[in-house]
Amino acid sequence: MSLYSNNLESRQAVVDTLVALGVKGLNRGTSGNVSVFTGDGMLVTPTGVAPEQLLPEHIVYMSLDGDPAEDQLTPSSEWKMHADVYVNKPGITAVVHCHSPYATMLACARKAIPAMHYMVAATGSYGIPLADYATFGSQELSDANVEALSTSLACLLANHGQLATGFDINGALKLAELVEEQAHCYWGTLAIGGPAILDKKQMDDVLVAFASYGQQAKREDLASGNKLNED
């Protein structure tokens, strides 16, 4: 787990990640947002600033209660969704939200991603859940997101996009890429009759195998709501 600070390095990491979302085809324009947890608050991307114009000093430092420090830009309208993840998912230190094409298509069709490929287990779960629809930036959306993430490190947001979390910002970005890859695969199988679903035992075996890979041993703990300090 990486804990971030309100410093230039952390701010630059947030900028680089938002830019990377566009470069990797996971986001366009000013949609999407990125944050990191600082222990006493978070750094989050501002609203309405295009990635190519974003500078470290534009990143907003704010409390998890919604109070930004003085003389800053307005934070993302979806800051609450990020803050509530940090409150409810101990150990998570980064959140990436984007409107990647295939994940968004499935979200608009209100289709969660089932266990059609073993890499779905990289979320620490048996599938990639779908959060109920709510207006962007609302407490209702944040609540729906937290509920969907109660058993997973990532989810789709109905009629919206996807959200991925991580033990560091690189992990959150990689998981967002994986969600999009799995969404693309699922979308493709739906066009040819639908996927063959792995059963619970098969997915249990994958989750056990993943647990032997470094920090992924803690993904199951987070997905099930256990705190890291209880290990």
Rank of each mutant, 00 (worst) to 15 (best):
H160R: 02
M81F: 01
S142E: 08
A196D: 11
M119P: 01
T17I: 06
R28L: 07
L156I: 10
P46G: 02
Y4V: 03
T123P: 03
L64F: 09
V179W: 12
A107G: 07
Q139T: 12
G48C: 06
G91E: 15
Q53R: 11
G25T: 06
A50G: 03
C185R: 11
S152D: 04
G41L: 08
V44K: 07
P195L: 02
V49L: 14
Q139K: 14
E147L: 08
D71C: 02
D143P: 00
A176N: 08
V34A: 01
V85W: 01
I192Q: 09
N33Q: 10
M42E: 06
E9I: 13
L21S: 00
V15Q: 06
F210R: 09
E9W: 05
L106V: 10
D40G: 10
L175D: 10
S152I: 09
T189Y: 13
N27E: 11
S2W: 07
Y86W: 15
N88C: 07
R28Q: 12
S150P: 06
E57K: 15
V15T: 10
E177W: 08
L21N: 07
Q12E: 12
A176W: 11
V120M: 12
S63A: 10
F167T: 08
L54G: 01
A154Y: 05
S125T: 11
F210P: 00
D231I: 06
N27Y: 08
T47G: 02
Y102E: 04
Y213C: 08
E52W: 12
V208I: 14
C155D: 13
Q139W: 14
Y213G: 00
L106S: 12
A115N: 12
V146W: 14
L175Q: 14
Q162K: 05
A131C: 00
H97T: 05
V95C: 03
A191D: 03
G161P: 02
S224T: 15
Y61E: 04
A83F: 12
S10F: 07
S125F: 11
G166W: 14
D16I: 04
T93L: 03
T123K: 05
V49N: 04
D143E: 14
K111G: 00
N7M: 02
T30Y: 13
K227P: 00
V146K: 04
I92K: 01
A144S: 15
L141W: 09
L8R: 13
N159Y: 10
L55K: 15
I128P: 08
V14N: 08
H99C: 02
Y213L: 00
K111R: 15
H58M: 01
S100N: 10
K80C: 00
Q72P: 01
V34R: 05
V179P: 09
A176H: 10
L149I: 14
D205G: 04
A94D: 09
L54Y: 02
S2H: 15
K89V: 07
C108S: 11
